[in-house]
Design a protein around this nucleic acid. Structure first.
Lengths: 201, 201
DNA sequence: GTAGCTTGTTGAGCGTTGCTCAGCAAGCTG
DNA sequence: CAGCTTGCTGAGCAACGCTCAACAAGCTAC
């Protein structure tokens, strides 16, 4: 394109950590527009201004690469959702919910790509997704101050799926105010946790 | 491998319809073990005993092919779930739920592959998934004899996600009797449809 | 300063896979 | 058996994941 833009600059080296971080960062930027598994090594290498080979120096396999990218995305989300430890149960839960909705509102594409891509096809990536869900579950159970028997775990996880889906739809077609959405989700979880007696009679 | 198994049989021709059906069928058989997008044309052609080229005669693109396969899988599921028109509302809903759980119990792999693959990466395949959900929604709303305002649609769709997730977990770790699971899901839907006032105050 | 080492980096190239295209041949019709 | 339709194939191209031997940037030691 611009042939004289960088005629023969003296090829600079980065530290291993820098390069890795840069490559993952590029992956994160590509995630919203590209289904995870369709990231092409060529494209990433081109953006980073390096050769394909170098990418394979840092990530043995394409899978390794986009698994790392997915994990990074998951970590970002998780970090964003974590409640401040000091506050009350109610505030922690509502806060997480609210931040989650905000996140989806801010990066709808990104979030869709993550949820879908992560849940999709590749077992490796699914593992990252499962793991993230599981960590979130632990946080939620702690915040709710609930024991984590198998049934309750299942219910809360399924409620995650409910929430993910509803928020995803709501972003596309806001049928209510944002605060109401959060309140609704909170109410559903509340009622849900009162249901379990069904399984115990 | 077995060099004399079919030495020079006189190459038989199938009708276009037959061939298409056979190819889709092969795709359906491969679905449980293979993430949709990882179906390789070579493998399918090999199983069908035809050349790669022929597959492209019927499906212009690999995407076209596995979209067709996914749609076929979705149709199978839908057909299996459809309620008998004569029966009562309650029986229709419970029946669908029961058949759904049975389906997931019978083909856990297959179902997982469908849900994940369908929700995953590729927009084309996601469309099939969305479409199936939407058709199921119409059936459910009719069975429940509910008006389909936007909010209710969103809630029932989100409940689908809840159900999908919970049943998926339950199959891996049956925390209750099957009948109880169905009853629980039914109860959750019921309470959910009583919540909407939240959005209307 | 320069020899020497570590290690970030590259280019050439191989196998697989999605896809194209020109042409062959099965099986019908007259 | 001529002629037509159309199911079907093989050769081959481009893109992509991945390998490997070798180059060179930038540090340390003398």
């Amino acid at each position: 394109m611009t042939p004289s833009s960088r005629p023969d600059r003296p090829r600079l080296r980065r530290t291993a950590g820098d390069r890795r971080a840069q490559l993952v960062q590029i992956g994160l930027e590509l995630l919203p527009t590209t289904p995870v598994q369709e990231l092409t090594i060529d494209e990433v290498a081109r953006r980073a201004g390096i050769s394909r080979s170098l990418l394979f120096h840092y990530f043995a396999t394409k899978r390794d690469y986009y698994t790392a990218v997915t994990r990074a995305a998951a970590d970002l989300l998780l970090e964003h959702l974590l409640p401040e430890p000091g506050t009350s149960t109610e505030q922690q839960i509502t806060g997480m919910l609210d931040r989650y909705v905000g996140w989806v509102e801010t990066f709808p594409q990104s979030h869709l790509a993550f949820v879908r891509g992560a849940a999709g096809g590749d077992p490796w990536v699914s593992d990252v997704y499962e793991d993230t869900r599981s960590r979130l579950l632990a946080v939620a159970l702690t915040a709710l101050d609930l024991p984590d028997d198998a049934l309750r775990r299942q219910l809360v996880l399924a409620w995650f799926a409910f929430t993910e889906d509803l928020v995803g739809q709501w972003v596309l077609d806001p049928t209510m105010a944002r605060a109401e959405l959060v309140e609704l989700l909170r109410a559903v979880l509340d009622r849900l946790l009162q249901v379990p007696p069904v399984a115990r009679r």
